[in-house]
Design a protein around this nucleic acid. Structure first.
Length: 109
DNA sequence: AGTCGCCACGAAG
DNA sequence: CTTCGTGGCGACT
């Protein structure tokens, strides 16, 4: 497994997401100073720390679930919703029900 | 090393 | 929904 410095930042940021909260790709990208949320998605897709990094807590800025386990749609995607639901996150009409659940990255602590 | 295509996104039309 | 833009990685040359 080879993890690029960029990916390291992504995982590090995602690890900061507390249970019961969700962050957006853009939010993560901005937190690590990426600018291109797609790069974040690629990093998460490559996510070698699958169970360690809560990639399921990362959704799109549109509040749509996004992808999971390398699948933009399908059963894996549904699993993502189940995991989030298990943490108190609820989705409605395919979008995040409680916007207040959005996680905010702090540059300091 | 240089170039092209791919990506779990985002913004605008 | 469709089109363009962004940043980074993998594969090919």
């Amino acid at each position: 497994m080879t993890v690029t410095p960029f990916q390291q930042r992504v995982y590090e940021a995602v690890l900061k997401i507390s249970r019961g909260r969700v962050a957006t790709y853009k939010s993560v990208a901005d937190a690590i100073g990426c600018g291109a949320p797609r790069a974040v998605g690629q990093a998460l897709r490559n996510n070698p720390f699958a169970p360690r990094v809560p990639c399921h807590r990362v959704i799109a800025a549109d509040l749509t679930p996004g992808g999971f386990q390398g699948e933009a749609a399908g059963l894996s995607r549904r699993r993502k919703l189940a995991l989030l639901a298990s943490e108190g996150i609820r989705f409605e009409a395919g979008k995040l029900a409680d916007r207040k659940r959005l996680f905010v990255f702090t540059r300091k602590g």
